[in-house]
Design a protein around this nucleic acid. Structure first.
Lengths: 164, 164
DNA sequence: CCTATACCTGAGTATTTTAGTGTGTTATTA
DNA sequence: TAATAACACACTAAAATACTCAGGTATAGG
């Protein structure tokens, strides 16, 4: 799970589509102008987003992009994964470097942390982000409370990872 | 807040120092061997970590690095910031690109998300990560539960765990 | 049917970041 | 004083980022 400017571009673009949803699809040219991102670069990003089913494109005049599914079902993690694609993450595929004295203790720690971060970003949906702002009155609506409620349910079962 | 392999190296190295804490400082050569990272590269990372007061170095034989303050007071966000240093984050410093039609709505959304992620990583300390593993019996001790407990207090909605 | 539209594809490129090597210098301890 | 290990700086290869350019393809409207 990498969190770079590339991912930010993708999330920003997806938010733009989510916000300007109507009967008409959103054109890439619009997004490029509104967000100040190169059009061709956006096209590359959307190619990956489409490959992952996060958007669907409609060609020809009046065409553009629409969300591939409900914004409620699109997480920030989904978007970031779509544009980063293929992060082998571990560097040691279970066997390599980890033959040293301590059998990769800190590596496991990082893995756990990484899992936490991922889980966090999986709980944040486009919908929750958009809703937070469009209901301008309350400043923090918010999805943390919602995530917490969900967590409460999960926790009894005890989320854990395997050891190694 | 970028989350790259560089940050992972830094966190990994800091964890290594935190784990192998004793009267003697931890040598960079040790860390390099245990974690399979280039020694000179680690030296560069530690230069930044030191600049931010996260570690302090001791020269000469028997020297090495120690944590600059208690592991309880060192967050993952601290470490990542130290090695990434100077991420202007916004790209538009409040004035630039954002002169377009919508005054940077999605930008604000990303900012909020970014703040959330940062807050999340600020709640995870080296101590919590190390404790989780050294108490090897229970597999997930864990800081999520602790964070949740804290959250519950904030929200002031007492309820308890339910099955899943 | 034609044409403008807007998605789609792929190749190429400049800049930045990552990850590392290499050569020293300085402080400290034994 | 000699070994040690931090510290400092210059340099490099490879990768990722952030584009540009040059086309191709499906589609709606005239």
């Amino acid at each position: 799970m990498r969190l770079t400017t590339k991912g930010r571009y993708a999330v920003t673009a997806m938010l733009d589509v989510a916000i300007h949803h109507s009967d008409k699809p959103v054109r890439i040219a619009e997004i490029a102008e509104r967000q100040g991102i190169s059009q061709s670069y956006l096209e590359q990003l959307f190619a990956n987003l489409k490959k992952n089913g996060l958007v669907c494109g409609r060609r020809g005049p009046g065409g553009g992009y629409q969300l591939g599914r409900k914004s409620k079902l699109i997480t920030v993690a989904n978007v970031i994964d779509a544009v980063n694609e293929k992060v082998d993450a571990t560097r040691c595929g279970g066997l390599k470097n980890c033959t040293r004295s301590a059998p990769c203790l800190t590596h496991d720690l990082w893995e756990d942390l990484s899992t936490e971060i991922r889980g966090f970003l999986e709980r944040i949906t486009l919908e929750s982000l958009v809703r937070k702002k469009t209901l301008a009155g309350e400043q923090f609506i918010d999805y943390r409370r919602i995530a917490l409620q969900k967590k409460k349910a999960e926790i009894s079962s005890g989320s854990n990872l395997n050891g190694n």
